[in-house]
Amino acid sequence: MVELAIGFMPERRIKLSRRRMIQLAVAMSAMSACSPSTETETAKDGIAPWPHDLHVPTVKHPGYGTFPDYFEIGETGPWPKILSEQHKRQLEKFADLILPATESAPAPSVIGIADFFDDWTSAPYPWMTDTRKTVHQGFIWMDKQADLMFGKNWLELSEAQASEVLILMRDASRDEGPLSRPAWMYKNLRELIIGAYYTTEEGEQDLGHIHAQPITGDYPGPTGEALNHIRDLIISLDLDWDNLPIGSPPYENYASYAFTADEPK
């Protein structure tokens, strides 16, 4: 039902007016509020109840199998994508707070974090099924919690307000108490956002990771600055640098390092 209601929404946020976004968000939280299970529990001590019984869409797909086509994965991937535009926007806001853009590195929303979650939450495997549940129930909770704290839903919150909600989730116990589920949600979504971000080219660049390219000839090992760094470190630890094999053979110093070659007595 949720998917149907927003199926006409344009792909990207920039094409969506803020007013329209809020209208949709309000309409959707009204729809989910109709669920009797979420109505029965009320907030205690300023913490919204987690909607444990909220229906989460099931995925019936056999998976990509043991011998998938590695080259023709297709633009849409192996399984139908079922994440709503509303959830994509909510996740983008979440992700951009976890890893805000810098001058040199783009925000997660800019490099397709929504598409990642669309793939992930539409997959039939156990971990992804858990995440699907977390997203569906969790953003209902986050809207309610945002409402309790600021009288707005998650997407309407300012950056500072949204950060306060995340801090509440981050610092809560994951083992017990009314915030245990929100705390798990924070931990799990944060892990996925970071994992998804740094597995992109932009993420690798931000790490300074040098992705290997084919070379001809021998692998050189560390060179220049990297070699100086490790040499200085090894020497500063009072370890032996002179008998180590640096780069490609021949190693002129190799004979200087020998371990006993005799048969033990």
């Binding site: 021998d218 692998y219 050189p220 090992g221 560390p222 990297a226 070699l227 760094h229 490790i230 470190l233 090894i234 370890l239 180590l244 094999p245 640096i246 780069g247 490609s248």
Partner: peptide
């Protein structure tokens, strides 16, 4: 050739 951490 050994890597930096392998040398260490």
């Amino acid at each position: 050739a050994p890597r930096a951490y392998e040398l260490l």
